[in-house]
């Protein structure tokens, strides 16, 4: 991925030298043509076309902001409710992610989900211990985390 971005930048600069115009506009034109060439030759590289990964990162940021908003609303509801009928508890969440940054990212995202909080990570990085505000639907929480966050992070790192 880094090689493709570097190549695209070099191609943009080559385009500027060919045109002998050093304005930002010609840089963007060169960057666009470089992107086009890299897209046509995308099977030439060992990793996939890097723009897809950029899209995945943008998608992850979108999910992050949405969950941040929803979690604050959920906590607000719980605080303002006159009777506190929640059942807190800790459940184990088995993760398939391997890299350190992926696990860190997942843990931070879970912490920002409505009503869940990562307490600890097992020594072999396979299980996250999550504290839930309402433990009664732990299975459902695991499934929803798996389907949204873990999938989105895998989409970035694949």
């Amino acid at each position: 991925m880094a090689f493709q971005i570097l190549l695209n930048f070099i191609l943009a600069f080559v385009w500027m030298f060919l045109k002998t115009s050093y304005s930002p506009a010609s840089f963007f034109v060169g960057y666009f043509f470089g992107l086009l060439i890299i897209y046509i030759f995308r099977r030439f590289f060992t990793s996939r076309f890097y723009l897809l990964r950029v899209v995945a990162v943008v998608n992850l940021i979108y999910i992050f902001s949405k969950e941040l908003l929803l979690s604050n609303i959920a906590v607000l509801k719980a605080v303002l409710r006159p009777k506190l009928n929640i059942k807190p508890g800790i459940f184990a969440f088995p993760t398939e992610l391997k890299e350190d940054w992926e696990i860190t990212m997942l843990a931070n995202l879970i912490t920002l989900t409505p009503g869940t909080l990562v307490v600890d990570v097992s020594p072999d990085n396979r299980i996250l211990y999550v504290h839930a505000m309402d433990i009664s639907d732990a299975d459902e929480a695991i499934q929803s985390i798996k389907n949204t966050f873990e999938k989105a992070i895998m989409e970035v790192s694949r």
């Binding site: 191609l11 080559v14 385009w15 060919l18 045109k19 470089g34 060439i37 890299i38 030759f41 030439f44």
Partner: peptide, 14 residues
């Protein structure tokens, strides 16, 4: 080739 190829194609677009 992995690098030169792209410069040649960019030059041809130019």
């Amino acid at each position: 080739t992995k690098f030169t190829l792209f410069v040649i194609i960019l030059f041809s677009i130019h």
